[in-house]
Design a protein around this nucleic acid. Structure first.
Lengths: 233, 233
DNA sequence: TCGTCGGCTGAACGCATGGTCAGTATCCTA
DNA sequence: TAGGATACTGACCATGCGTTCAGCCGACGA
C-alpha cells in the first residue's frame, strides 16, 4: 500500500519492493505477484514497467551496483569491509541492499561480476595507498592479496547468518562487530602463526616443483603447493 | 541413463543425480522431472522414494553432511581450508559435493547450520592443538578466531566463481591454488599491517566506550559482555 | 503354479507462475 | 477543450510444476 507521503515514482516503488523481496527470499522464490502486492500495484504493471521478471531483476541489479559504487564511490574506494560501518549506521535502509548484494555476489551473473570487480579495484587501490603510506607491508602479490582481502571483507555479508550464529546473536549487531574487531585486527596485524615455518616450507615446496621450470604441467596434477601441516620439526 | 556397471541402489542414483543438479543449478531451478531424467527413472519414482521434493533435499543434505563430517571426520578436524586438498585430489567426485555444500551453507537451513557447526568445531579443535604445539599464537578470543578462520576457509567454496575469475582462471585449478599459497600464508604469518597502530587504536576505542561504564543514555543495551582485554603491545 | 509385494511407469490433476491484452483512468500538450 | 500518450487494472492464457494414482512387471515364498 502506498503511503501518502511516498513521493517515489511507481517504478521506483516496485523496484524497491523487489529489492526487499529478492534479497529476503531470493529471486526464484519471489513471484511477480508478490512484488506487485508489496508495491501496492497490479501484477500487469510490473511487467509494463520492466518488460519481464528478468527485466525487473536487471533493474534491481543496476540499482544495487549504482548504490554501492556510484554515489558511494568513496565507500568502495576503502576496504570492502568498510561497508560494515555504513551498514550499521543506517540499518533499516541498508539491510535490504546488503541482503540483495549478498545474494547477487553468489549468483553467477554478469552483474555480480561487475560489482565484485568494482569492489576488488577499490581494495587494490586502497592497498596501493596504504603501502605507499607505510601502513601496509608490501605484499608478495598485490593482486592476489587484494582478491583475498575483498573476499574476506565480503564474508560478513554473504555468510551473515553463520557469522551471527557464531557470535551468539540473531543478526549482525554493533555488539557482534565489537567482539570481532580485536581478533580480526590481531590477525591482520600479527598474523596467526607463531613463526614463519609454514611460509618458508611453502616457499621451498613451490620452488622445488617450479624452479627447474621442468614443465611440471600434467605429469604431476596432484602436487601439493601447501606445506606439510603435521610434524613440526 | 543407467550404465551397465552401475551397482548403486536406484535410490542412491536418484540422490546422486539430485546432488549434482541441485549443486549446479540450485534447488528451486531444478525440477523433479530433471532429477528423474538424470537418474534415468520416472518422476513418480522420485516421489515414491523420497516422499516429496523437500524429502529429496533433506536426503541430499544428510548425505552431504555425512560425507563431509562423517566418514571424512579427519578432514573436518583440520582447517576448513584443508578441504581444498581433497577437492583437488579427486575433482570429478568432489566437485558436485562441494557445489552442493556451497549452496547449502548459504541457504538458511538447519542442515547448513549443523554442517557449519561441525566445521567450526573442527577448526576450534585444530586451533587448540596448534596453540598447544606452539604453532599458532594464543588468540585473543579463541571462539571468534575459530569462527573467522572457518568462514575464511570456506570462501574458496562459496565464492568459487569470483576467486577463479580474480586468479584469471575458469575454475579453481592447482595453478590457482599455487598462486594463492604464498600471499595467504604471508598474511597468516606476518599479518597485513606494517605495525600495530590500528590494533592499538581499536583497543583504546573499545576501552573508551566500554571501560567507564558510562551508562550512555538508554540504559545501554549495548554494553559489552566481553571481558576487558589485555593490552597487546 | 499361484499370490503378493515392492519397484516402477506415465498419464493425469490441480495449481501457481510469468506473461498478455483489452479496456479504463489520468495526465500532458496543443 | 480535444486528443493522444501514458499509467494502470484485472481477467485471462499457456506452461511447467509437484504430486497422485491406477496399473504393470519381475522376484520370491508357499
Amino acid at each position: 500500500m502506498r503511503s501518502a507521503d511516498d513521493d517515489r515514482t511507481t517504478r521506483a516503488r516496485i523496484r524497491d519492493a523487489a529489492v526487499v523481496l529478492f534479497g529476503r527470499d531470493g529471486f526464484d522464490a519471489t513471484s511477480v505477484r508478490a512484488v506487485a502486492a508489496a508495491a501496492g500495484v497490479s501484477p500487469g504493471l510490473v511487467i509494463h514497467h520492466f518488460g519481464s521478471k528478468d527485466g525487473l531483476r536487471l533493474a534491481c541489479d543496476r540499482y544495487i551496483v549504482d548504490e554501492f559504487i556510484g554515489r558511494k564511490g568513496e565507500l568502495a574506494s576503502g576496504r570492502a569491509s568498510a561497508l560494515i560501518e555504513q551498514w550499521l549506521a543506517d540499518v533499516d535502509r541498508m539491510t535490504p541492499l546488503i541482503d540483495y548484494a549478498a545474494r547477487m555476489l553468489t549468483s553467477d551473473t554478469p552483474s555480480a561480476d561487475s560489482l565484485f570487480d568494482a569492489l576488488l579495484a577499490g581494495t587494490a587501490a586502497m592497498i596501493d595507498e596504504q603501502v605507499a603510506a607505510g601502513i601496509i607491508r608490501p605484499p608478495i602479490d598485490r593482486d592476489v592479496t587484494a582478491l583475498y582481502l575483498t573476499l574476506y571483507g565480503l564474508v560478513p555479508l554473504i555468510m551473515q547468518r553463520q557469522l551471527a550464529r557464531g557470535l551468539g546473536a540473531e543478526r549482525i549487531t554493533t555488539e557482534a562487530i565489537r567482539r570481532s574487531t580485536l581478533p580480526i585486527l590481531d590477525l591482520y596485524t600479527h598474523g596467526l602463526y607463531a613463526d614463519d615455518r609454514f611460509l618458508v616450507a611453502a616457499q621451498e615446496a613451490l620452488e622445488r616443483t617450479n624452479g627447474p621450470r621442468s614443465d611440471k604441467g600434467e605429469n604431476d596434477p596432484n602436487q601439493d603447493p601447501d606445506p606439510p601441516r603435521r610434524r613440526v620439526s
